[in-house]
Amino acid sequence: MIVPYTHVMLLGGVLFLLGMICTLTRRNLIMIILGLEIMLNAAAITFVGAGLHLQQIEGQAIALFILAVAAAEVSVGLALVVCIYRQTGTVDPQCIEGNKCQLKPDQTG
């Protein structure tokens, strides 16, 4: 006997929340992608827990798919970040918008 499913769910929820905080509050593209990874991970945990709760392998299969999607997303995302970094010299998401970058004077200065 392990813990109740609600605890797994709560863990997944808290992890998701942490990922969300990361994506929302960090001014750094890489950290945003990191936050996405955390959120995907939380989803995977919840699926695996649900699979155990319902005694079905389906949850694990979906966790595997999540893994694959995460891998694809990270590779493309990071390639984009690199591209952007090469073009603008920064990974601050606000500077990518172009017109209201407040970072550049600081960076140059």
Binding site: M20, T23, L24, T25, R27, I32, P93, Q94, I96, E97
Partner: peptide, 13 residues
């Protein structure tokens, strides 16, 4: 929507 990605993201959430 004009603002940076994260404000949009917040709206999405």
């Amino acid at each position: 929507h004009r603002a940076m990605i994260q404000s949009k993201l917040m709206v999405v959430f």
